[in-house]
Amino acid sequence: MVVAALWAVMGRSLLKATIGLAVTSAIITILMFRLGSPLAAVFELSVCTGLITVVFVSTISLTKPLTNKEVIAQSKERNKRFGYLPIAMIVTSIVLTLIKIKHNIAVPPVTDAITDVRQMMWNVRQLDMFGQIIVIIIGALGVVILFEERRRDEW
């Protein structure tokens, strides 16, 4: 997962970065299945791995590709800036390894008997569903307005 994330961040082309992100999502999906969250995993696989990759690829395809000179100049500059990322990761790993966390986290016992996700979503967290609907409508309107303006510019 971390290697795919590194590939997404450090990859030279944006398309490879998008593929790296999709691979990260796919690995997270597998982990979600293994951790007993199949519904969230299905959402992650279909939406994050599929839809978001399509959104990224269509955005990249609508932008103009760089010339060879620009690519070489940018890649030199990028290598300078992103060269510190592996070092930052190694330092973070060392710091995390050195931190000693004591096992004294008290988790309250599970009192609610709801184990079904659908029941939880529709009966307990109704406000979340309402918020999701509003967010989806606002997002759809925002995207439509952005693309509509683009079409008007072309006229």
């Binding site: 007993g36 969250s37 969230a40 959402f43 939880m120 307990v124 967290r125 999701q132």
Partner: peptide
């Protein structure tokens, strides 16, 4: 609490 966290993750 996988049911609760799944609902939140979907959001």
């Amino acid at each position: 609490r996988t049911a609760l966290t799944q609902a939140m993750v979907i959001t």
